[in-house]
Amino acid sequence: MDTTKIIDSRGAACPGPITDLARAYRNSKVGDILELWATDKGVRADTQAWATKTGNEILDVKEDPEKIVVKIKINKR
């Protein structure tokens, strides 16, 4: 069964949310859904660049007053 894993990177500015995403990627498998929570504004561009590079897919980006939520599907591992 596919799993959704929440990665809470709120407050992380340096090295930033991409650290937690890359860590989760190492432990993930094809079909997993990763949900990255961040407050760092750079997360949109960085996750997009990361997904393009790694061949994974951004399903959705949502922003509420407290966080930015990026939903990623692991297609390649």
Binding site: A13, C14, P15, G16, I18, T19, A22, G42, D46, A49, W50
Partner: peptide
């Protein structure tokens, strides 16, 4: 580097 750029935090 595993990050998108030489230094991970964009402003630096």
């Amino acid at each position: 580097t595993p990050f998108p750029r030489a230094y991970p935090a964009e402003p630096m």
